[in-house]
């Protein structure tokens, strides 16, 4: 069960990165860390058999779900990086603290 603990820790490290990093690339990398953490949690839990029934209730379909997560994650990363490039070109900004349009 160390795997689940590691995955949770990785996820929270990613959260910290998303909240503190000032550069957009860093934020995107931190999001990758978060998502890797969540995928790791799924796989780690799917690897064990139920202590009562002895079957793997999550089985193959968890792996399929993780695969689909990877696809979504890849799409997210691609769009995020494209946004980064676009913002950098148009506004000359690569830092997230310079984007404050939603100020209250």
């Amino acid at each position: 069960m160390i795997g689940v603990l590691v995955s949770v820790a990785v996820f929270c490290i990613g959260v910290y990165g998303v909240l503190t990093r000032r550069d957009i690339v860093g934020v995107l990398a931190s999001i990758e860390v978060m998502l890797a953490g969540s995928m790791l949690a799924l796989v780690a839990m799917a690897s064990g058999a139920d202590s009562v029934t002895g079957v793997r209730p999550l089985g193959q379909s968890i792996e399929a779900v993780v695969l689909l997560l990877m696809v979504i994650d890849a799409a997210e990363a691609a769009v995020g990086l494209a946004l980064l490039v676009s913002v950098a070109r148009r506004r000359g900004v690569t830092r997230i603290d310079e984007l404050q349009e939603v100020k209250g």
């Binding site: 959260v15 998303v18 909240l19 503190t20 934020v27 997230i96 603290d97 984007l99 404050q100 349009e101 939603v102 100020k103 209250g104």
Partner: peptide, 17 residues
């Protein structure tokens, strides 16, 4: 409370968390 709405997306995320 308005000072909380500082337009910083990360601040919003922190408050969400």
């Amino acid at each position: 409370l308005a000072s909380l709405q500082n337009g910083d997306g990360q601040w919003y995320g922190a408050m969400l968390g």
